[in-house]
Nucleic acid binder design. Structure first.
Lengths: 195, 195
DNA sequence: CCCTTTAGATTACGATCGTACTACCATAGG
DNA sequence: CCTATGGTAGTACGATCGTAATCTAAAGGG
């Protein structure tokens, strides 16, 4: 009865999700049409609705998938303080700033996500918390909950810094913002928790 | 020769710029059509191009105007350390988070501005620097240049924090992020400059 | 080995909305 | 009363999301 191996459709679906994620980060959610998204995946607009029930559906899925990818990326750094510092430096690097399509989905899409349907915001929240709990567990293995808000807020700091650096027309200034952002992130991470 | 007092057209232009600024912050730049923007100002779409040469033109103008407004808002706080702290607390308040149309244009639009034409990014940069230099002059009257990067980076921190708080579906968590963001901003501001 | 079935994609379409532009109109002011 | 200013209304034309009819080719049965 199975005409096409069941992995066929799932594979194309996954391909759409991944290419759409990159396109969203490049051109924005509102700036990416269904036709373009499908062309990126090597398909035509009509096939879209065989895989997703609406564009919102894809947005929620692609954002989650992007954050899952970011979570994997984060686990590629070693667990100690040195690993965290390298992670911060890599995140707040000119390379990351200049290639949003390969980078952090939050930095690229956060203020569009603010305006999305609740379902998308919920998907975003869940995926972000998975990342944050991951990092919190590394920083404080015995009481991850205690550093959750701090890790979240450092994530926010890095997102804002990257966005601002991307929006400044003056490259020198944009670089300075990144460097100061690194210092700030480390300052906050090292600050006494009870402050 | 002057049929209508010259202030008439300028006044409508200003009205368009202001209502458009609010609309952009509500629905995004890409999410706001010219017809809607004009309706907000009590006009019809056709009149738009008598005031602006294109939508991009209005975007650049409205963003600048919004930042000018924010600069005025900032000057309403007193000059000392206490004023700065109150400003941070007001910026990172639930009220600000829940009313983006009355709030910070950077928090509402920054990652759309990243993708805008150079002209808009240039306008954004100029207006932001005016704000930053204003604050820097208050913090270090004798050497404002020395704290410019730090003030910019704290602005980035606050922007990212507000955006993240807006995007989280869990209200409790969103509030926590704001509170931790306040602590972080103050920590960074109080950190020794040579760190 | 051909032939049917059918999953999965294509092309075509509809309705709405996007920006940009233009011809016309109402009224204010001399 | 007449002119020109600021606005309206309508238009062009492409892009938008979503649906539906049509085509293609893979997988299995006879």
């Amino acid at each position: 009865m199975v005409r096409y191996g069941k992995e066929h459709k799932l594979a194309t679906r996954q391909r759409i999700i991944e290419t759409a994620g990159r396109r969203f980060k490049r051109d924005g959610i509102n700036g990416s049409g269904v036709a373009t998204l499908m062309k990126d995946a090597g398909l035509t607009n009509g096939a879209f609705y065989a895989h997703f029930e609406s564009k919102e559906d894809l947005v929620a899925t692609a954002v989650s998938e992007q954050l899952r990818g970011q979570r994997e990326w984060l686990t590629s750094f070693e667990s100690g303080r040195a690993g965290i510092e390298l992670m911060v430096r890599t995140y707040l690097s000119p390379e990351h700033r200049d290639n949003p399509e390969d980078g952090c989905p939050s930095a690229a899409l956060l203020d569009e996500i603010c305006r999305c349907a609740d379902r998308t915001k919920q998907a975003y929240t869940n995926s972000v918390l998975a990342i944050i709990d991951d990092i919190a567990a590394r920083l404080a293995p015995h009481d991850p909950q205690s550093v959750r808000a701090k890790v979240l807020s450092v994530y926010a700091l890095m997102i804002g810094t990257l966005q601002l650096s991307r929006s400044l027309a003056d490259r020198r200034l944009a670089d300075e913002v990144l460097e100061q952002g690194i210092r700030n992130a480390l300052t906050v991470l090292d600050a006494a928790p009870e402050r």
